[in-house]
Design a protein around this nucleic acid. Sequence first.
RNA 1: GGGCAGGUUCCAGAGCGGCCAAAUGGGGCGGACUGUAAAUCCGCUGUCUACGACUUCAGAGGUUCGAAUCCUCUCCUGCCCA
Length: 427
Amino acid sequence: MNLIEELRWRGMVQDIMPGTEEQLLKEMTSAYVGFDPTADSLHIGSLVPILLLVHLQRAGHKPFALVGGATGMVGDPSFKAEERKMLDLDTLAHNQNGIKAQLEKFLDFDPAKPNAAEMVNNFDWFKEISFLDFIRDTGKHITVNYMMSKDSVKRRLEGDSGMSFTEFTYQLIQGYDFYHLYTAKNCKLQMGGSDQWGNIVTGTELIRRKANGEAFAFTCPLLKKADGTKFGKSERGNVWLDPQKTSPYLFYQFWVKTTDEDAKNYIKIFTFLGQEEINELIAAHDQDAGKRLLQKKLAEELTVFVHGQTELEFALKASDLLFRNDTAEVLQSLTESQLLEIMDGVPQVEVAAAELEAGKDILSFLAETNILPSKGEARKMIQNNGISINKVKVGAIDKMIDKSLLLNDKYILVQRGKNNYFLVIVK
RNA sequence: GGGCAGGUUCCAGAGCGGCCAAAUGGGGCGGACUGUAAAUCCGCUGUCUACGACUUCAGAGGUUCGAAUCCUCUCCUGCCCA
């Protein structure tokens, strides 16, 4: 099975330019994906593009990861309702380094290999180009009519928030990246999310007109959940690849909570399992969906891929303890080191021992630890039966928190709702 | 530069002098049912020293017993004309 066929059955091909498949069969081809340096870590939304590069490299082609130091300064208007805020140079540099470090975990950068991955930063070439140079040498190849005909632009023109010239320019800037990589690195293919299609095509167009060359493109579908909402956010916001930002436990939890329907798609996209194995898994899952085989497999594979085997083990242990029923007694029986090991990835909050000396009302306790945003919220949550302490439901809003509740003399496990846990450490 | 339409609580969007902490929808968060799923149903969704008090309707002033609602100026956005 060739690369494109492989990606097709996984559901990772949305649009593809004619000739792309042939090009990939013909020779080792260099291809790139761009990453936005909006934060110093990638999040799971970037996982699909990363996987595209990994598949590409496994198929013997050469991946380029482009970090958008320059484009990050402009901001892509594609399908966004509003212009985004710009980042300053220092932040950008910091973010690029973080992203680079992460990509190195997934791609093989060993220069000894002919298809070693490479990292490039478009700021490196854009910093040399003056505005006048750009509009004379590049801008004149593309008409405004052409640029305006892009869906992403049209949508913004029709909307009521307008679009700045800066944003309008974005597709040309990105197109130039492709042109540059084409001429400098013989890079003939750009991949990305389907929202990038318009920008990518502008690049191939520029290559055709300015370099008289032929370049290719394909995009993968933008992931959506079956209910149509956007993919990649948890209750606490973005799910990051950086374990400091999203612990492996929470990362694992994110995937394990996937719905049946989504899991069937995700397993193909996010794991490297083969077609047969996946079909068997899905069949087994349908036999007894309550076992959540698919979700668990998905979560395991991804946690290993991103964080490694050891971290997965911890995540599994914690999940097992926290989500089994009748664990109140188990909890009491754990030693301190067992407890800490298991709770490693659970969000932790600290409280001064003196605070609990005389006992503290639970409303203040929940609000001051930021487990809930305010006392009012805490009150409602308890009245709605949404709070547990050490796996035991709190029934009354006048409950006092004091030292008698401490596990191993210094911990309290607070649960908000069904699956939000907090380990309170008393110091 | 001129004209017009707007800026309301997370979002959309009502309200147009007291009954407004502000309709309705969405989202979010809880609960029930389950399988840490979906669907469904129920509750909550400004803060607090909580049957009451306090701070909100772009900003600053003003009119009034009383304003999100009226007036003045400012800022911002969109559309149209130049």
